[in-house]
Design a protein around this nucleic acid. Structure first.
Length: 889
RNA sequence: GGGCGAUUAGCUCAGUUGGUUAGAGCGCGCGCCUCACAUGCGCGAGGUCGGGGGUUCAAAUCCCUCAUCGCCCACCA
């Protein structure tokens, strides 16, 4: 511990080695049978191909803070890491690489392509987990999972088959969201609605008998080639007579009927809707009600197919749109075009505009799952932070729609369904184990080509990562978990679905607290992204300032429910709070450790009589910091917890206690040993408070403190508890010292007294606390305020000086001879007096108001009376000083 | 269209059930290399709490209203 520490904190010399030390000592691992109440967090599994970005940094910092805090509080804290196979995302990455070699996945074929993806994942996948180490993440790496692992795959299959048996999974032909680039169906959640400026075209369809026409309004004119009817509201007087009539569908040789359906809004557009059952969900429903044909006019990649007239075949949907409009115009059938803003779905992985498409897919029936999930929330089994997110969750569950879970991809969990194509058999098998042959006819089976939505494996993670469907000790010990920490973006994708799966398969919600944190944004409040180039690389920040600086900056900038704003263009000032504090902490430690030795007594061994007022004061302050920080950590107000430790260390401990105690620490007197014991004790406690947020520096310094068991570690140490040796006297005396010193420093600055020059101070009408402070701690005041001497007297000194009247009425006068500008001093005192007189008048009025004195609580009234006395006294003193200086007025 | 929310210092935000002269960090100004730290020390300026109305002895805090901004959901083509 006498070993020299560098004056500048150098994280690179510490962090990586310390992380490996912790890991080597098994600090992150938790056994199912370990003692203590469990505290479990499931890490939102990053995509296996992901690279750490600022969002991950924030998300994982929060989780790590919680895990470390609860571990120190005596819980058996488990943080489960893993990666997600990320079906579409990963497949897209590998396809892109193949494309560079001029190949597509179809060139390779399914088996070889999947092999290729496994190779890619094996070589580059999971790097994000290694990057999380740099952040300091204390997760249990022994339990790292991958959503395609055999165990988790078994869970997926078990869930699919069980839900199918329960009638909760079905296959059906419906309008789904289709990505024509990824060539797969998507769930509603994966189709991101984006408000887009488009047009609404009014197209005129002539009646077949030539007796007139009807105008329909559409945002997607190209789909008219798939129209099978035009619908109007049955009560619409404009069209009632036309119901049942036949239209000659322009650009085609088809005839379509005019039908009546109440789904049509009379007020919108023209009040007549073209019906395209294969390309629009509403039209699909209308079509079903009226037994209309479903005319699919598009190919997988959204080009027009052979059902349309020849000249349109093979055209891209947007090219076709232009051409359809042009032909309508040429025919004089384009009634008009209006600008129109509407929500257009985009693929959440590639941004391509979604094509609503009629397709055979697998679905999960959601209502039976959503009802319990909603009830659990209403009954208080789930707690949202911030609370308002709960209503968003409830709103979604209340309007739930079935979940399309099949994907036309190759990378993922293959759907465990087999079909027998044998003549006269045609059996469908849904099975936990791969069947060899058709149980009906013994013939060959063909497995469903599709894979499952990635989220169909991640929604099981709270129990599948613990070994389910086996009833493992881990499952017993660690389900349900405690908190789920993530961004609001995946509330529906993941969080709500985990609640449903947890309730359905385990009978309990998977976690009690859902902490939804903000987003890391730039100074224009734009989300950080690769394409905008406004990202901040957490690894670069760690390299420059250390993980602790990054973590502190993120945590302190993160009030509950708010975004973290950072400036990518100015990393230096963005991370100044963390960097500065890390360095400050380092230097506090450096200074203190250089004055400690192995003989420092334990606080409990110090005779309480030996404590100075400053000792008792700082012990009271650390107790306050402990209580405050603990409460805030428990409430998930991490920024407030961090700030409690910050202010204790920087303001109370470094600025006042250490500065006051320096002579004691420098010396070798018994009193010095008391100061060392106190300083070591409170510093130890403060390091514990701060450890969850800044694990590396706190551990490094803590290990060098005396009394630390060499086999022990801060990461595994208990949370600090208050010592309760403080008393009111100490805090009053120290407050008086601080006020007097502050006043003198203020006067020195006011009159530009050179820092090196010592002056004197005269205290007039000292309050009892001030008298105590000067009598007992005059020496300390002298040193901190750079005074030659400090004296108390009853009368104002002759020599001209600067004066400050403290709140308790004590006057602090610094005679400064020629330095004092009398006019300025008079003005300053006068302004101060006027300001206070205003307050006094207001308070007098308040106190003379019988309504106030009779209705307000007595304590409030008494407090106001006391305040009035203080202010009056201050005013009197200020007036008196002005008089003594011979000020005018 | 439905749901949720925001507006406090130049910037990012605190302000817990209504009750001291509304706080912090960053930024800014002045003075300092004081033997732990210039990533520092000391001092300071800066806010009619978005506008208006109301409830109350008392409102940044509760209610109404207007304005501006944001997020989520949504089959008015």
């Amino acid at each position: 511990m006498t070993e020299e520490l560098a004056p500048q904190y150098d994280p690179s010399a510490i962090e990586a080695a310390l992380y490996q030390k912790w890991r080597g000592e098994g600090r992150f691992h938790v056994d199912a049978d370990a003692p203590g109440e469990p505290y479990v967090i499931q890490m939102p599994p990053p995509n296996v191909t992901a690279v750490l970005h600022a969002g991950h940094g924030l998300n994982n910092t929060i989780q790590d803070v919680l895990i470390r805090f609860h571990r120190m509080r005596g819980r058996k804290a488990l943080w489960v890491p893993g990666t997600d196979h990320a079906g579409i995302a990963t497949q897209n990455v590998v396809e892109k690489r193949l494309a560079q070699a001029g190949k597509s996945r179809f060139d390779l074929g399914r088996e070889a392509f999947v092999e290729e993806v496994w190779t890619f994942v094996g070589e580059t996948g999971g790097q994000i987990l290694r990057q999380l180490e740099a952040l300091g993440s204390a997760c249990d790496w022994d339990r790292t999972y991958f959503t395609l692992d055999p165990g988790l795959s078994r869970a997926v299959r078990e869930v699919f088959v069980t839900m199918h048996e329960q009638g909760l999974i079905y296959r059906g032909k419906y309008i789904i969201n289709w990505c024509p680039r990824c060539l797969t169906a998507l769930s509603n959640e994966e189709a991101e609605k984006e408000e887009t400026a488009g047009h609404i075209w009014h197209l005129r369809y002539p009646l077949a008998d030539g007796s007139g026409s009807i105008v329909v309004a559409t945002t997607r004119p190209e789909t008219m080639l798939g129209d099978v009817a035009v619908a109007v509201h049955p009560d619409d007087p404009r069209y009632r007579a036309m119901i049942g009539a036949e239209l000659a569908l322009p650009l085609t040789d088809r005839r379509i009927p005019i039908i009546a359906d109440t789904a049509v809004e009379q007020d919108f557009g023209s009040g007549a809707v073209k019906v395209t059952p294969a390309h629009d969900p509403t039209d699909f429903e209308i079509g079903r009600r009226h037994g209309l044909a479903q005319l699919d006019i598009m190919t997988d990649d959204a080009h027009l197919n052979e059902t349309v007239p020849e000249r349109f075949r093979g055209l891209d949907r947007f090219v076709a749109r232009k051409q359809v409009v042009a032909e309508f115009e040429a025919l004089g059938l384009l009634d008009r075009v209006e600008p129109h803003r509407h929500a257009v779905g985009h693929c959440y992985r590639c941004g391509t505009i979604i094509e609503p498409r009629l397709s055979d897919q697998w679905f999960v029936r959601m209502q039976p799952l959503a009802d319990p999930a909603l009830a659990a929330y209403r009954q208080g089994a789930l707690r949202f932070i911030p609370e308002r997110q709960g209503e968003i969750y409830a709103n979604w569950l209340g309007n739930i729609r079935d979940w399309c879970i099949s994907r036309q991809l190759w990378w993922g969990h293959r759907i465990p369904v087999w079909y027998c194509d044998a003549d006269g058999c045609g059996q469908t098998i849904v099975a936990r184990e791969d069947p060899d042959a058709c149980p009906g006819c013994g013939g060959a089976l063909r497995q469903d080509e599709d894979v499952l939505d990635t989220w169909f494996s991640s929604w099981l993670v709270p129990f599948s990562s613990l070994g389910w469907p086996e009833q493992t000790p881990d499952l017993k010990a660690f389900y349900p978990g405690s908190a789920l920490v993530t961004a609001p973006e995946i509330l529906f994708f993941w969080v709500a679905r985990m609640v449903m799966a947890g309730l359905h398969f385990q009978g309990k919600v998977p976690f009690e607290t859902i902490y939804l944190h903000g987003t890391v944004r730039d100074t224009q409040h734009r989300k950080m992204s690769k394409s905008l180039g406004n990202g901040i690389d957490p690894l670069e920040v760690i390299e420059r300032y250390g993980a602790d600086a990054l973590r502190y900056t993120l945590v302190s900038g993160m009030a509950v429910g708010t975004d973290v704003i950072l400036d990518p263009a100015d990393i230096d000032s963005s991370f100044a709070p963390g960097r500065n504090f890390a360095n400050k902490l380092w230097n506090i430690g450096r200074f203190l450790l250089s004055h400690l030795d192995a003989d420092v007594p334990r606080l409990a061994d110090v005779d309480p009589e030996a404590f100075t007022a400053f000792d008792r004061w700082i012990l009271g302050r650390v107790d306050f910091a402990i209580r405050h920080a603990t409460t805030e950590y428990e409430r998930y107000r991490l920024n407030d917890a961090a700030s409690a430790a910050y202010h204790f260390l920087w303001s109370d401990f470094a600025d006042w206690y250490l500065e006051a105690a320096k002579p004691r620490l420098y010396g070798t007197t018994p009193d010095g040993r008391v100061a060392r014991a106190v300083a070591a004790h409170v510093f130890d406690a403060a390091l514990r408070l701060l450890h969850p947020v800044m694990p590396f520096i706190t551990e490094t310094l803590w290990l060098r403190l005396p009394h630390a068991d060499p086999r022990s570690a801060l990461i595994a140490s208990p949370w600090p508890t208050p010592v309760d040796v403080a008393d009111g006297t100490a805090s009053r005396d120290v407050a008086a010292v601080q006020a007097i010193v502050g006043a003198i420093r203020g006067l020195r600055a006011e009159y530009g007294v050179a820092p090196g020059r010592e002056v004197s101070a005269t205290i007039v009408e000292a309050s009892p606390a001030a008298q105590q402070a000067i009598t007992k701690m005059g020496e300390t005041i002298r040193r901190l305020a750079k005074l030659e001497q400090i004296t108390m007297q009853d009368t104002i000194p002759d020599e001209a000086g600067g004066t400050i009247v403290l709140e308790d009425g004590t006057s602090v006068i610094v005679p400064l001879g020629d330095l004092v500008d009398l006019d300025r001093e008079c003005a300053r005192l006068g302004d101060e007096a006027m300001k206070l007189e205003g307050l006094v008048r207001g308070l007098e009025a308040k106190l003379s108001n019988a309504q106030f004195t009779s209705r307000a609580p007595a304590a409030v009234v008494d407090g106001e009376r006391e305040k009035l006395e203080t202010w009056r006294h201050q005013v009197a003193s200020l007036r008196q000083k002005r008089q003594a200086l011979g000020c005018p007025g």
